[in-house]
């Protein structure tokens, strides 16, 4: 995978996904050490370019780079709205001229990572582009589930919520189905985009149908603006009809895992009881995020040579 971009999990075959997950397992060993530093990427530089604020993902990438001894520079380019791309192209050229070895991009426009990758020779890692993809989030979810469940093949995964606006859901769907899981989705009809079957999903008629006998349950974050946009009646209605509470989670298998991409809207898409409960693996996900990103940097930057 050396020298390649990571733009969308759809670009990776099952064997490549496995390669990343295996590399992530070794990286998790590094994370378990007291001195979390290996010289793998010494002398290589990494820029994180965030046109949309996301402290969590950015810190995760920056720590991943630092643990591998790369020089990491963070650029907070948070823009209020989608801006004309000349700036993105110019930024790319500037970074290239400065000799960076890889760029991590978060942008609110779908396809922005693709656009940047076209202008840059060095690898581009998509840290979220609009509603399109968030491949490292997908990978960390795969990693988290696989670590707990051993194998993804044959698992029933339920993804509940705002599928329409979720890049996390798209990347999870692609990755999970590629590795053999069966993914059911459910949510308010106004937040289910057309053609989810094309991404490998089975669309359930009700939340309950999706949850029944599930091995893994994921609730998606509900942005408050969906109510202002008139897409749903409101938070309370959402919590009652689609939120993950103890009773709903009980429809899944007793040992089902509960995942959430964070940050949480407690009392909306999930109750505190579930989010803080024994089945929740939210901090596994966070930890896996660093390991997976270390693995991606290692593989794309060819630290192995």
């Amino acid at each position: 995978m050396k020298g390649r971009d990571l733009l969308d999990l759809a670009d990776l075959g099952a064997d490549e996904l496995e390669t990343v997950l295996e590399a992530a397992a070794s990286m998790e060993d590094v994370l378990a050490r007291r001195i979390k530093k290996v010289p793998t990427l010494r002398g290589r530089s990494l820029v994180t370019l965030f046109f949309e604020p996301s402290t969590r993902t950015r810190i995760s990438f920056e720590l991943a780079g630092k643990y591998l001894s790369a020089d990491v520079v963070g650029v907070n380019a948070a823009a209020a709205s989608v801006q004309k791309g000349e700036s993105l192209e110019d930024t790319a050229r500037t970074l290239e001229a400065m000799g960076v070895d890889a760029v991590v991009l978060r942008h609110r426009a779908a396809g922005a990572a693709e656009l940047l990758a076209r202008c840059l020779e060095v690898p581009v890692i998509n840290a979220g582009d609009g509603m399109h993809a968030h491949p490292t989030q997908g990978l960390l979810d795969l990693y988290t589930v696989r670590r707990r469940k051993g194998e993804l093949r044959g698992l029933k995964v339920a993804i509940i919520g705002d599928l329409e606006h979720s890049r996390v859901a798209r990347s999870d769907l692609i990755g999970l189905t590629r590795l053999g899981a069966q993914v059911w989705v459910a949510g308010p009809a106004t937040l289910l985009p057309p053609g989810l079957e094309g991404l490998g999903a089975r669309v359930a008629a009700t939340v309950e149908e999706a949850l029944r006998e599930a091995d893994v349950v994921m609730a998606l974050r509900l942005q408050r603006e969906r109510q202002q946009q008139g897409l749903i009646p409101g938070g309370e209605e959402y919590a009652r009809c689609f939120g993950l509470n103890r009773q709903r989670l009980a429809l899944a298998k007793p040992d089902a895992l509960f995942l959430h991409p964070m940050p949480l809207n407690r009392g909306v898409e999930v109750t505190s009881e579930v989010a803080d409960g024994a089945q929740a693996v939210l901090f596994d996900q966070v930890r896996a995020g660093v390991a997976v990103r270390m693995a991606v940097l290692y593989l794309l930057l060819g630290g192995g040579n």
Binding site: A10, A110, G111, R170, P193, G195, L196, G198
Partner: peptide
């Protein structure tokens, strides 16, 4: 166009 492709690409339809 809003459809399977816009869903895949994450573009507003």
């Amino acid at each position: 166009h809003r459809g399977a492709v816009s869903t895949r690409l994450g573009l507003p339809g």
